[in-house]
Amino acid sequence: MTIVGKHIVLTGGASGLGLELLKQLHNENEISVIARASTGLDNLRRSFDGVHVYEADLADLQSVETAADLLVRSGKKIDVLINNAAVQYTPHFLAEDFRYETIKREIDINFTSVCSLIYLLLPNLLQPNPSMIVNINSGLGLVPKTSSAVYCATKGALNLLSKSLAYQLESTNIEVKQVFLPLLDTAMTKGRGAAKISAGQASAEIIGGMQEPGDTIDVGKVKLLRLILRIAPRLAQTIMKAG
């Protein structure tokens, strides 16, 4: 699919990778953003003409349903749905700063809201012309690390969801693609890791991959991780465990 003249629905478009995707897609496409109220969202409204904003806290499923209903009732067909929004809490379960309440929030934002939006927006994705669901995943959806156990679990679940969903939709006009990211240089990863790639570089690779055949888009070092996982899975697990 050539990504020009499309209506693209993007979650979490007010910061980080989502904002970079918006910047690179905005000039040649119509963009609808689903994101929670924030200073970043206010800046987005001022900076990008023509972007449709649907405020929703993806941890609040009633809020997600309201935003999806508004999109469906707008009557606009959706050419691309990009499920990008995610949060990551790093404390171990045994750590003193682990917060019990973050478990549900992390699962709802990273996984439950994705399932919900896909289902609720299907009426606008099912159309005569080709459309696409793009789920933004992580290398941690292939192999987990020690910290961020709930985050790793949500990304593993997203991996299996995407594969099963592709089977379910293979007789329709909807293509399902999955993006596997390395560590990006964003606010979410501030103070963690080294050799990060920029959100701008990742966005360019994602958009390029969306226009190519195949159901997976491996960005940056994920290509190497997938190779190691294939030829030496225990080594991949050792490397990622310490990540």
Rank of each mutant, 00 (worst) to 15 (best):
D57V: 04
N43E: 15
G50Q: 04
A56V: 09
D42G: 13
D69H: 12
S74E: 08
A68F: 11
H52G: 00
K76N: 13
H52I: 00
R45F: 01
L41W: 14
L70W: 03
K77C: 12
G40S: 10
Q62F: 08
L71M: 15
A67Q: 05
K76R: 13
Q62Y: 10
D69E: 08
T39A: 15
L58G: 11
A67K: 00
L44Y: 08
V51G: 09
K77I: 12
R46T: 14
E55A: 11
Q62L: 10
S47Y: 01
G75M: 06
D42R: 12
I78N: 05
E55H: 09
L58W: 06
G40A: 03
V51K: 02
V51Y: 10
L70Q: 13
K77N: 15
V64F: 03
N43A: 13
G40C: 10
R73M: 02
I78M: 11
T66M: 08
S47D: 15
H52E: 03
F48Q: 05
A59K: 05
H52Q: 07
L71A: 01
L61Q: 15
L58A: 09
A68K: 06
L58H: 09
R73L: 10
K77A: 14
L71E: 05
A68T: 07
T39D: 15
I78G: 06
L58I: 07
V64N: 02
T66Y: 10
T66F: 02
R45V: 14
A67L: 01
E65N: 10
V64G: 09
A67V: 07
H52T: 00
G40K: 00
T66Q: 08
L71N: 00
D42P: 05
F48A: 01
S63H: 01
G40F: 01
T66N: 07
S63Y: 10
N43Y: 02
R46Y: 11
G75C: 10
K77E: 15
V64Y: 03
V72I: 15
D42S: 15
E65I: 03
H52P: 01
R73P: 06
D69T: 09
T66V: 07
L44I: 04
E65A: 14
A56Y: 02
L71R: 04
K77T: 14
V72A: 06
V64W: 05
G50T: 03
V51R: 02
A68H: 10
H52S: 08
G50W: 05
T66E: 10
L44D: 07
R73A: 09
G50A: 01
K76A: 13
D49E: 06
A59I: 00
